[in-house]
Amino acid sequence: MNGLYALKPWYADRLSGLRRALAARQVSPDTLTAAGVVCAAGAAAALAWLPAPLAALPVAVLLAGRLAFANLDGALARDTGRTTRRGSLLNELGDRAADLLVIAGFLPLAPLWLVAAAAFAATLPSWVSLAGAAAGAPRRNGGPVGKTERCLLAVVAAASGWAVPVLAVVAAGSAVTAVARAVWVWRALGQPETAAAAVGAVAIERAAAAERGTATERDAATERTVASEKSVVRVAEPASPATRRRPSPAPSPRPSPLPPKPARGLPLDTGEVSGGITHTRPQTPADRGTQLRGTR
């Protein structure tokens, strides 16, 4: 029993033109998710502050926008190839925040305990669906009181002022929807093909994680190799002894083979030897006379 969720394909076809226009303008799917949360907050404000007949139109318009953005964000991500795990997480958080904001609009109109019970029950169907998907079952949507039915009930409360009966229906119907989804997921997980698909999905995820770890190790090893190569200091090898050049000794002055010539004019006479050095002096005419007398 899918309830109004069965109309989702028809509703998605009506939004195909808008989806193409958003894709052409490169609008981010995350922006559409945020816009859906803003619409839910506006509907809650209109429900809380406007009287019953006047609140119906703004609440209906804003909740229709909330459902449209919830449909467009995922479809736009698939059409443009921008599906990411972070985008899926943001989509789920946006849906839960939008549901809680709409129910928070009943705070001035109903007892606090009933608002809290309806808020808690409204999140149960999504918890069951996410738990089943994590276990390997297909994602289960729809039900007696799903997201679309809760938005319709909020419009009814805005138009009639029956806040307490509407909240009671939301709480009870959401609990029934959660139980119905849990039964469906339980049966799906018991089927052999579902179990095999779950095991295969786990194996694929583990293989992908191992591949990511291997790639990380390869990158780390490459970085270490590059770092080690950069840290090597290349030192020039010393030259071999055969190729070494010794400095050439400075040429020593050669001693003159001939004694110094005496000065012209006067013959030299040998003098006294002092300290190993012979002192000579020029001969005078008296010396020459003495020498001539001795030889006569």
Rank of each mutant, 00 (worst) to 15 (best):
A201N: 11
L100N: 05
A24C: 06
L109C: 09
L153A: 04
R86F: 14
A60Q: 10
N91M: 02
F106S: 01
T214R: 13
P192L: 14
A180E: 14
G42Y: 03
A118N: 01
A64S: 09
V102L: 06
A41V: 09
A157D: 01
A178N: 02
G289Q: 12
E211F: 09
R82A: 10
T148L: 14
V61G: 04
T31C: 11
I277V: 11
A121P: 01
G81D: 08
Q291I: 07
V232T: 14
G36H: 01
A137W: 00
L7A: 14
G143V: 00
A198I: 06
A77T: 02
L266A: 13
A24V: 05
A48P: 03
L130E: 13
K230M: 08
L109Y: 09
R288W: 13
P285S: 09
T284V: 09
K8T: 12
R293Q: 10
R212L: 14
D219E: 10
D79Y: 03
W49Q: 15
P282C: 05
A207F: 03
W49Y: 14
A121E: 00
E272Q: 11
A163C: 06
G142W: 00
K147N: 05
W127N: 08
V37Q: 03
A117V: 07
V145A: 11
K230N: 09
T270Y: 10
A117W: 05
T284F: 05
A209G: 12
A23E: 04
P51N: 08
L57S: 07
R86H: 14
V115I: 03
L62C: 11
A44R: 01
W127T: 08
K147H: 04
N2V: 12
